[in-house]
Write a protein that binds this DNA or RNA. Structure first.
Lengths: 140, 140
DNA sequence: ATTAATACGACAATAATAGTCGTATATGTT
DNA sequence: AACATATACGACTATTATTGTCGTATTAAT
């Protein structure tokens, strides 16, 4: 419960890896898949999705791969998660709101408040803070 | 993703309902199930679990049901969720930590920090703030 | 006795997540 | 031109987590 999906994890690992290189450098999906033991096909599809979203730039053909494109400080964790997984919410009625209960529901508003708190944590976190190398990101 | 389970939702609805009554009053599972359109058997099992955890007191036989027991201000959302769903963490290595990656993982510590932030939101929220009737919990 | 409630293990159904396969397309190298 | 190696992507399968059901036992008021 309340877990990140592997899709998001893999995407973060990939971005972190790519941004560890010199700007403009190309990274192959295979390289990441091997280094972090991620199924290649799955990772490939994730990178393709990031490419469609212009977060990464694809380069085809041999010597191809992906190039970091958007500065990670420009993407919030909320945006990122929602790009990969769709709208985020602790509860369905935070998203679509066709629920049998709704009018008789006695926890809707309080949960909505909790949801907003969580969401603002994610809103205020940039990917740079997760994949970047600021304080705290040292080996234990 | 990042959703509460129905189990948790149903449990919160039930507690909120029970705590809306006079102290000592008994509530039947059936009553809650009907009012909020929750499958009776499922709700029953959840209430039984809350009874085992001493959050609620069971009363058997006809005219039986459950009686609110623990003051809701005394239970954090973290405790509650973990009672119902087991340990909570954005990522498995926040919980058990047998992961093929681990040593080579490049996002472990940063994710752990995010996890701690979320967790502290839940730690600092009591059920009273969710099921109780303080500010904000009015019909929209 | 009967009835209406909880207790609970085992099972079944559904849905979400994770992963695979096949095939097409692009492009550098020979 | 042929080949090798990369991305692109839809369709499929497998696995796991969640949600819900069933059957049966127990308790206790009437």
């Amino acid at each position: 419960m309340l877990k990140l999906t592997r899709k998001v994890e893999y995407a973060l690992i990939a971005l972190q890896h790519m941004h560890g290189k010199a700007p403009g450098d190309i990274t192959k999906a295979k390289e990441i898949a091997q280094q972090y033991t991620i199924p290649l096909q799955l990772l490939a599809k994730i990178l393709q999705q990031l490419a469609r979203e212009k977060i990464v730039e694809p380069v085809q053909g041999p010597n191809g791969g992906y190039r970091a494109k958007v500065p990670l400080g420009a993407i919030s964790l909320t945006e990122f998660v929602e790009i990969l997984e769709g709208p985020m919410g602790l509860v369905d009625c935070n998203i679509d709101s066709d629920c049998i209960q709704l009018h008789q529901c006695n926890i809707r508003l309080p949960i909505q408040r909790v949801n907003n708190t969580i969401k603002s944590v994610f809103d205020n976190l940039t990917l740079a803070q997760i994949t970047g190398d600021e304080a705290g990101n040292k080996p234990s």
